[in-house]
Amino acid sequence: MDKQTDSAAEAIKAASLSLALAAEGEWPALEGMSSVHVRERSMLFGTSVEDSLSLFASGLSAWEMDHLRVSVGSFDPLLPLTHGVVFAVLDSETTLAAVPFSVMRPYLPLSPLKATVPTSASNASTSLITSYVVLMRATDAWLFHNLKVSTDWAVEARAWSSSVEEAKMRHKAERNRISSTPLPSNGDRDYWDSYDLSDVKNACRPMSSLSIAQDPKEAETDDYWNSYENNLSRF
C-alpha cells in the first residue's frame, strides 16, 4: 500500500470511528480522539453546552444541524466508508482530510437516502445535501476535527486535493504565488484585500469569532492580524 492509499485508508478509519462514537452519543470518547482545537473548545464551554453535537459542529445554521443529527444518527459502522477522501494543507504543521459520509435530498422530510455518495467530487450532485467529517493530522494519526454540511460539495471540494502530496504541492504553489506578488502602493490593506478566498468554505470557526470589546485606537494595528487569522480559519 503506497503512502497516498495509506493516508486515505487511515482517514476513512478515523472518520468511521468518529461517526460511530457520535451516533452512540459517546462524546467523551470522541473528544479523546479529537484535535487540540476541539478539546480547547470543550474546555471553554464545559458542561454548559446542552447538545454536544453543537460543540463539535461549529458554524452551522439550525436546518444544517437538523440534517446533521439525522445523518450522524443513522450512520451504520458496519457499512464501510469507501467514498472519495480529499485533503488540504494549511501550513507546514496543519493537514486536514474531509470524508463524505451521507447524502440527503433537500426540501424533503429528514430521512437518510439509500444512495451511494459519489466517488469523486466532480461527480457529486448539487441536488444532494452532503455531510462530511473533517479530520486533522497529528504526528502519527488522524484526529476528529469537525462535522460539516454542504449543499454543493462539488464546488466546496475544489478547495481540497485528492491526495496529501497534491495538497502539499498546491499549498507550496500558493505560498510561492503570494511571496512573489509585489506589495501594492496603497499598503498592506490593499495587498491582503487582493486575495479572494470566497471559494473556500469555513469548516471550523475560531473562538476569536466571539465578540470582544476593542479599543478603537487598536483597530488599525489589528487589520493585518485579522486578515491573517481569516486565512487560517478557513476550515
Rank of each mutant, 00 (worst) to 15 (best):
A121D: 02
T151V: 04
T95M: 04
S35Y: 01
F235Q: 11
S211P: 07
S52Q: 11
A167D: 00
G73A: 05
K172L: 10
L210V: 08
A8S: 04
A8G: 02
A62H: 13
T94N: 05
E26Y: 05
V86T: 09
W27F: 10
S74R: 08
V103C: 10
A88I: 06
P182M: 08
L143I: 07
G32Q: 05
S208V: 09
V99S: 08
L108K: 15
H67V: 05
A219C: 10
G25P: 00
K217V: 02
L147D: 00
E93M: 10
S127Y: 11
V133E: 02
A8N: 04
R170G: 03
D188Y: 09
Y107L: 14
E50P: 08
E31C: 11
S163E: 05
E220F: 00
R170C: 04
Q4W: 01
K217H: 03
F45V: 15
L30G: 07
A14L: 01
N202Q: 10
V134Q: 10
A124H: 02
L19C: 03
P206M: 15
A98C: 09
P109I: 14
N146P: 00
E31N: 14
D6I: 12
L53I: 12
V149R: 07
V103E: 03
S211W: 02
H37N: 12
